[in-house]
Design a binder for these strands. Structure first.
Length: 496
RNA sequence: GGGCCUCUAGCUCAGUUGGUUAGAGCAACGGACUUUUAAUCCGUGGGUCGUCGGUUCGAUCCCGACGGGGCCUACCA
């Protein structure tokens, strides 16, 4: 297998590449295998739209110049057919007949044009005797010569091949193009909803001297100019909150986060994250907003809250999503009352009895593990799980009335954690205490625990208004809306 | 990180219980064909069977290491 097209290697090239390189040479001698400009008058889609239902064997008298990628060729002796495809997947047939283009041009077409080439044709819009909308070609020109053969269009491409050659996947597979479009439309819908609610989009640092705002292992890098260690951000949270301190009362960011953790069907080392903060909101108002963002996206993109997933099942995103208490739903599911006061020894015993094998200093960690074991998989419809343990949520405000829990929710859709929201902790003294607890954990060997971000604490000391905040994985939102794996919702996922 | 599976032509895949020359469809090459729709028909070429090593008279096949990929599992969203 050769990945280089250097001349000295030409003898070792796959046969088909060597042949196409010769054709490229011939095209360059005749004219140009890669012309800079072509007299295109219409897109393929425009030609199709202008002639939606012509009768069989019609000549319109309209002449157009179009370009597209050759997807199929059917060359007979004196009449050749080529199916041209535009970038958006629209196709039209080109017909080259001996009496229109002449013997020389017809021969050159047969000799030099391969599947995959970008071709320009100029001619009359007609329908064939079988009724296919076609361009009856007067002249043709190579628009861009392809050196490598296209993959076989009649077999499904393997998943690995598709991920590693997304450009081919996009040419060959309608669904791949659709997903790109859906993603763009979802992004537009999210921004539209935010704009309607008077949120401002900002961009905060991706290179950070201290990583914070989540618990995850960061990617490390180094700045030559500052001669200092830098981290790719694991979350934008602490900067967005600085913005709220500064008076950007409704603020959001959609951008990439990086986490040096495992990759699987629902995790990618870099992933698009949405975070939003609303001054004078709380975890209830931000839950309302989250539901609205997702429902608007489904409606804007698919025209319904009942979205059809890849496997044909329907994901019903409609209605008001239930909010269930973590402690209450766990108590109900496991058959014994679990509260923040339940001794950790009892939790450990319960965990052991259902084969949850963890050893952790935090009470809340056991509660969350037990909840995931007993309740998580039973949630299919979108559900806000509210009121989390305090000791695993260092950036969240204590519950206004329930002791031992914080005002935090996780949104679950079809068993996936889709988003998380808080009544944000804004008391700088409590925040410092929580950070110190984290640092103590770090010293105890917990690599995910946060470092103390003094500048962030200073910002809080200048006063952050009471706020609701949320974070949502964009790639996961796409998964919920389409049923695809994360490697299909990300156009170019990381591959080794 | 741990366990299991996988890698054969440009693409999708057969196959060899270890034996002379590794197959198919599409793609390519030569030829025929003025209405095809994955065009058809006749003919031809194309492979370091992931890489390296071992066992063997003989390895694409068995064994080992390495590399790529997948699934399960652990951590994270």
């Amino acid at each position: 297998m050769s990945d280089q097209l250097e001349h000295e290697d030409e003898q070792d090239l796959p046969e088909q590449i060597a042949i196409r390189l010769e054709k490229r040479e011939r095209l360059n001698k005749l004219n140009d295998a890669y012309p800079v400009a072509l007299p295109i008058t219409h897109s393929i889609g425009e030609v199709r739209a202008a002639h939606p239902d012509l009768d069989v064997d019609v000549a319109t008298g309209e002449f157009v110049g179009i370009a597209g990628r050759v997807m199929f060729q059917r060359n007979t002796g004196k009449l050749c057919f080529a199916t041209l495809q535009a970038g958006d997947g629209q196709r039209i047939q080109a017909m080259l007949s001996l009496d229109k283009v002449g013997e020389e041009q017809l021969e050159l077409f047969k000799e030099l044009v391969d599947l995959g080439d970008h071709l320009f044709v100029e001619g009359e819009v007609i329908t064939s005797k079988r009724g296919e909308l076609s361009i009856l070609v007067n002249s043709w020109k190579m628009a861009a010569k392809t050196i490598r053969p296209m993959p076989n269009l009649h077999n499904e491409l393997g998943e690995e091949f598709r991920v590693r050659h997304r450009y081919l996947d996009l040419i060959v597979r309608d669904r791949a193009r659709e997903v790109v479009k859906i993603r763009a439309q979802v992004m537009a819908s999210l921004r539209k909803t935010f704009t309607e609610d008077r949120f401002l989009e900002i961009e905060t640092p991706m290179l950070q001297t201290i990583h914070g705002g989540a618990s995850a292992r960061p990617f490390k890098t180094h700045s030559n100019a500052f001669d200092t260690e830098l981290f790719l951000r694991i979350a934008p949270e602490l900067f967005l909150k600085r913005a709220v301190v500064g008076g950007i009362d409704r603020v959001y960011e959609i951008n990439r986060n990086f986490r040096n953790e495992g990759a699987d069907r629902t995790h990618s080392p870099e992933f698009a994250m949405l975070e939003a903060y609303e001054a004078y909101g709380d975890y209830n108002s931000i839950a309302d907003l989250t539901q609205k963002l997702i429902q608007n996206a489904a409606m804007d993109v698919f025209g319904t809250h009942q979205v059809v997933l890849e496997d044909g099942t329907i994901n019903d995103l409609g209605g008001v999503w239930p909010r269930i208490s973590m402690f209450e739903s766990l108590s109900e599911a496991c058959g014994q009352k679990i509260t923040p006061e339940t001794p950790i020894e009892d939790l450990k015993k319960l965990a052991k009895s259902v084969d949850i094998d963890i050893e952790h200093p935090l009470h809340g960690k056991y509660v969350e593990e037990l909840w995931e074991h007993f309740v998580k998989d039973t949630l299919v419809q979108p559900t806000f799980v509210i009121d989390f343990p305090v000791d695993t949520s260092p950036l969240t405000r204590n519950h206004r009335s329930k002791p031992g829990v914080v005002e935090k929710w996780d949104l679950y859709i079809r068993g996936y954690e889709q988003a998380t929201g808080y009544s944000e902790l804004v008391d700088p003294v409590v925040q410092r205490e929580r950070f110190v607890e984290q640092v103590t954990l770090a010293a105890a060997g917990d690599p995910e625990a946060m470092k103390l971000d003094e500048d962030f604490l200073k910002a809080l000391e200048f006063g952050m208004p009471p706020s609701g905040g949320m974070g949502m994985g964009i790639d996961r939102l796409l998964m919920s809306l389409t049923g695809l794996g994360i490697r299909e919702t990300i156009m170019f996922p990381l591959v080794k």
